[in-house]
Amino acid sequence: MGNQKLYKGSLQTIILKLLEENDKMYGYEITQRVKQLTKGELNITEGALYPALHKLEADGLLDVEVAKVDNRLRKYYKLTENGTKETVSRLAEMEEFLKTMQTIVNPKFV
């Protein structure tokens, strides 16, 4: 398992990116998808995921839907119009960040 601290600042971008690809997702599904995509390298903790989701919702980037699944209520998150725009800009920022890091960590590579 990698250094979780390094991923921490990117959690919101990761959530936005997943929702961009999946229309709507619920909390547990997000943790599992990330685990699956990163082959267990990144493990989003419950104590970090929900605060990030609630913050994005409060900022108007996510909207919620609730459905009865099995015998319980499930809360789905999806991108709002603003959220879709924000995802594009956050992903661009992320790419820029990765490039910058690459120039520092591995200058020959660039």
Partner: peptide
Amino acid sequence: KKFGVFGFMDVVEARSKALSKK
């Protein structure tokens, strides 16, 4: 246990902040 030593407190706190803003 996966919620860590503070249990559900982080989630409750974040939700309270978000709804205070709302």
